[in-house]
Design a protein around this nucleic acid. Structure first.
Lengths: 245, 245
DNA sequence: CAGTGGTCTAGACCACACT
DNA sequence: GTGTGGTCTAGACCACTGC
């Protein structure tokens, strides 16, 4: 593979061009999640700019959680395998403030044609094949969340129930190691809804109880949407935690 | 007033010390929201460091939304009076994606002794005097949110219904201009709840409908909690929008 | 035009991790 | 010790704003 070392956009500050080139290398899997990228000096040489300029580019990518700096060791591509990133997108926490430990139970994993709604969110054509997964998450033996997940089949070929059941960690670590797909950011829309009979059964609560509905679109490099999730949380004993800055 | 120009903490990088000193000046109201702070060169002279070091300090404060840089003009203290910051902490938006325009109706504003729960959140003593405000917010004539707000009376002396009704803009702009209190960040805990008879009446919905419950603690400079809010949103037609990075 | 923030460089030195 | 990122400096020049 040829190294990416020529500007991509026509004009902007140098460090923006460097950012774009580093991003392109990430997207092209030149460096994989967990890997160290070349040192600042090496990148400065490669792009023919000063170390300070590379530094500013890396600083901004690190601020977006795409890279992780480790003094004395190097700069690494962010990965959901790491301790700190394991539950990076999980905002649910017990009212007590402790850390939530969730256990998975997968109910279904089927291959279906996409309806127009999911297709629009995933930016694929209606009718294109997608994978739909259902799961229940429990904390201390109590079911807390019911989730439906939709994935474009083209990217997640062969994904099935056995693989999911065999995987010990978080979903996003699974996508990364099995499908070379690293999630970079996500958007959520939150509502309050009433439990119907199905949800009541899954979550062992009474019909008509209030549930938190969270619809998430998750994106990989290049703002590409690659996962839709619709979660329903029982917020009795836990809540969705958010910081506003 | 004597200028703050001596280190506050004992050791850390220079730019961290500069950050702390700028922060102290903000907290001490040496520069007010909306004001320009001294230029990078002036601050560099004042703190006896290079411009680059001041720059890094300001960069980080700007990243936290405490300062705003405007090329060619200067660096300004962030204010909720500004267009962009008006609804900085409002995450509710119509499902259509348009901008929400809310109208206020204040129901009550009373002076009461603090219960232990609110006291703990505000870091005051139980029994200390607090102000409690109730309001309904409507969009296009439809009530959408019911909010209870608690403020420490010591900081918000004399606040009453007439003042609230006379104020045209957002609450946080009001706190800023009338009580020299600028909100810097906030934390929210979100749950789904069922509407009781009171909420059903206020929001013109049926009892037992699902509502989003949002408990917010808002902080001013120095991580000082100065406002508690408990909102109940009708998420029929609008949702709480969140970005995860 | 002068004054502000924004970019870029080159070089010195520090703090930390590995071996 | 060597190599990594982290801090700090000094100086040049660019881009934008407002007089």
């Amino acid at each position: 593979m040829s190294l990416i070392s020529e500007p991509i956009a026509s004009f902007s500050p140098l460090y923006e061009q460097i950012k774009a080139m580093i991003l392109a290398s990430l997207q092209a899997s030149e460096w994989l999640p967990g890997d160290a990228i070349p040192s600042e000096m090496e990148l400065a040489a490669r792009y023919a700019v000063s170390q300070g300029t590379v530094r500013k580019a890396i600083d901004e990518l690190a601020a977006q959680n795409l890279l992780i700096r480790r003094q004395g060791k190097g700069t690494f591509v962010a990965t959901h395998q790491e301790e700190d990133f394991q539950y990076r997108f999980l905002r649910l926490e017990p009212d007590s403030g402790e850390k939530l430990h969730l256990k998975n139970q997968f109910l279904a994993c089927e291959n279906i044609p996409s309806d127009p709604y999911i297709a629009r969110l995933l930016k694929i054509k209606p009718g294109d094949s997608i994978i739909r997964i259902d799961r229940i998450q429990s904390s201390a033996g109590r079911p807390i969340a019911f989730e439906e997940i939709w994935l474009p089949e083209a990217r997640f070929k062969g994904l099935n129930l056995e693989m999911l059941n065999a995987w010990p960690g978080p979903m996003y670590a699974f996508y990364e190691s099995e499908y070379a797909t690293h999630m970079v950011r996500a958007e959520e829309k939150i509502k309050a809804v009433l439990a119907g009979s199905d949800l009541a059964k899954y979550l062992q609560i009474s019909e008509g109880a209030a549930l938190l509905s969270v619809e998430r679109v998750a994106f990989t490099y290049g703002n590409k949407p690659v996962e839709i999730r619709h979660a329903r949380y029982d917020t009795n004993g836990q809540h969705y935690d958010n910081k506003l800055n």
